[in-house]
Design a protein around this nucleic acid. Structure first.
Length: 571
DNA sequence: GCCGTTTTCGGCCCGACTGTTTTCAGTCG
């Protein structure tokens, strides 16, 4: 049973306990476990086998027993019993913002409503407004939220959101006295998708910033406009909240709005034990009632005796304990990246020429670039056959002689066929500097053959890198069915590197996978898979994923200098 | 249901907003 399925069951349990009006702390305990499971680098099933569930934050004896029952029998008695107490589908009402457990139960008990459709019908019939504490405004509000939910409430990939922030920031650059403008929330933590954008900044004159902001050409609608906060919808339907705060409390405010929620809860619980109270305004000494303000996050963490915690790892897992002991590593950063080892050119389905891609990489300050056009099996992508690949190898040789200051690796993104064989003969692969392999077709294979297929490719001695290992596409296409733990074990044995594909729609490996691969000592490589010059800039998204997986520069193959990469590829 | 430099019981993060209220319940982030 997959972690996501286990997490779903416990999320359901939390929802049902809410409907039941259970002890809120018990509910929170379940919610905490859901978040822990979602961030787990290993499969829950494996932890059960090794009797290590207790190591997961928030998992105690009772939940250990429940998880064990669930993954070993595929069934959880407690959950089934709980479900039977409520009408099927009732918890779906909780998906509507402004409807919580109390309202959902009221609607269910008084009006026998158990779906969003039924709720809409009841509103239209005026039956909802007749309930106690249900005024016109409340009903209107619910209706609006249902419509928003129907219209489009999907999260967008971080790679689409960040360029919007860049544009907005550019538009606000002219405002005098505006400082510290930056995103908070999921975006700052580089979660792979975001629902809206939180922007924060400090200013001498908040009103001036807000006025400029609401008049930006991207702004389509202003939802709320207050003294220090404004919410707008930009073209494309994305909501952006901008908050302007005081310079001297920016640190604690930014920290608060960056989250994650679980990180902040853990931080506050700890602060409480130290006699302190944390809020977005600063740190209050509980004994003296005095409040201390913090202009920077660094100072905010330091006051609590903690090492600075990078936003990408603030997920309420191990990070606070590590910060206490001062053992948070220096995570990889964009400037550490010395090259890109997976780009396409117009030899296959890329937009730009080989030389143009090389020059663009050089302009980014890279020491090397790996060409990885498709193999012939990708007919639709003008994949290269053996003849054209030989020509390209020659072309790259000439270019390497002509340009002294950047090294070009000749390589290929070779298709892994359904049976695990490669779409290019081994003799030719031996001539290449770097061989990257990837699955592009037959994505619906069952887990067992798919796993065998990928492992067979990983174990080919000519293969250096497995690209976008799960083939998922954000926000819609699910990853292929594959036993990732088996893939990791095979990659570790064969010393094959695994790619973190930085394309915003891929981000594959994802954070938890990168974490696990790193634990096993597998080399990671962050590639853009660029199909045009502009795509080379996707690198920062891959770096974000690597950081979320706690990766250091030493874990990333393409953060090493040219000589070391050459040595690795020869080995 | 979890957890411990107040350790096996008694706590459990914090503040704001909204709407329906006349003192607060419910929801959210």
């Amino acid at each position: 049973m997959k972690n996501s399925e286990v997490a779903k069951v416990f999320q359901d349990i939390a929802d049902l306990l809410e409907l039941k009006g259970e002890n809120p702390f018990k509910i929170r305990a379940y919610q905490r476990v859901v978040r822990s499971i979602e961030h787990l680098p290993v499969e829950v099933e494996q932890l059960v086998k090794e009797d290590r569930l207790k190591e997961v934050p928030g998992v105690g004896e009772a939940i250990t027993n429940k998880i064990t029952e669930l993954v070993t029998t595929g069934h959880l008695g407690y959950y089934e019993k709980l479900k039977a107490e409520f009408p099927e589908g009732l918890s779906a009402l909780l998906d509507v913002p402004s409807i919580g457990p109390k309202t959902a139960m009221l609607l269910s008990q008084e009006l026998d409503i158990k779906s969003i459709d039924e709720l809409e019908a009841a509103i239209a019939g005026g039956r909802v407004a007749s309930l106690p504490r249900m005024g016109d405004k409340t009903v209107e509000n619910i209706q609006r939220h249902i419509q928003a939910l129907r219209r489009k409430d999907r999260r967008i990939p971080v790679g689409e959101a960040l360029p919007i922030v860049d544009e907005i920031s550019a538009g606000l650059r002219g405002v005098v006295g505006l400082k510290n403008l930056m995103p908070a929330g999921r975006l700052r933590r580089f979660r792979e998708t975001v629902g809206d954008i939180d922007l924060m900044g400090t200013a001498d004159n908040a009103q001036e910033v807000i006025q400029t902001f609401v008049n930006l050409p991207q702004v389509r609608e202003v939802l709320v406009s207050g003294v220090t906060k404004v919410s707008v919808v930009v073209s494309g339907g994305l909501q952006i909240d901008l908050r302007i705060v005081e310079h001297d409390s920016f640190g604690s405010t930014l920290q608060y709005f960056t989250g994650s929620k679980q990180h902040n809860i853990n931080l506050r619980e700890r602060a409480h034990r130290l006699g302190l109270k944390l809020s977005e305004y600063g740190i209050t000494n509980l004994a003296t009632e005095e409040i201390e303000k913090f202009a920077t996050e660094e100072a905010f963490y330091e006051r609590q005796g903690l090492q600075f915690i990078p936003p990408e790892i603030r997920e309420g897992q191990q990070e606070i304990g590590r910060a206490e002991r001062g053992t948070i590593p220096r995570l990889v950063e964009l400037p550490d990246i010395k090259g890109d080892l997976h780009v396409h050119t117009d030899w296959s389905d890329g937009h730009d020429s080989l030389e143009a891609m090389v020059l663009a990489a050089r302009a980014l300050g890279y020491q090397y670039l790996g060409i990885a056009d498709h193999s012939a099996g990708r007919g639709i992508a003008h994949g290269l056959d053996t003849e054209r690949l030989r020509q390209q190898i020659l072309e790259i040789k000439k270019l390497n002689q002509r340009l002294g200051d950047i090294h070009i690796f000749s390589g290929m993104e070779v298709d892994i066929r359904a049976d695990g064989s490669l779409d290019m003969p081994d003799e030719l692969l031996e001539e290449l500097d770097i061989v990257t392999v990837a699955v592009h077709s037959g994505l619906n294979q069952a887990e067992e053959p798919m796993t065998r297929r990928i492992i067979k490719a990983i174990e080919n001695p000519n293969v250096d890198v497995l690209a976008h290992p799960t083939c998922r596409l954000l926000p819609d296409r699910e990853p292929v069915a594959v036993d990732m733990e088996a893939v990791f074990q095979a990659a570790a044995r064969a010393n094959t590197a695994l790619e973190i594909n930085a394309m915003p729609s891929r981000l594959d490996l994802k954070d938890t996978h990168a974490h696990r691969a790193r634990e096993l000592g597998i080399n990671l490589v962050i590639n853009t898979d660029a199909h045009s010059l502009e795509h080379l800039r996707f690198m920062r998204f891959g770096v974000g994923v690597a950081r979320r997986g706690w990766a250091q520069a030493a874990d990333i193959l393409n953060s090493r200098p040219l000589e070391e990469v050459v040595a690795y590829l020869k080995g």
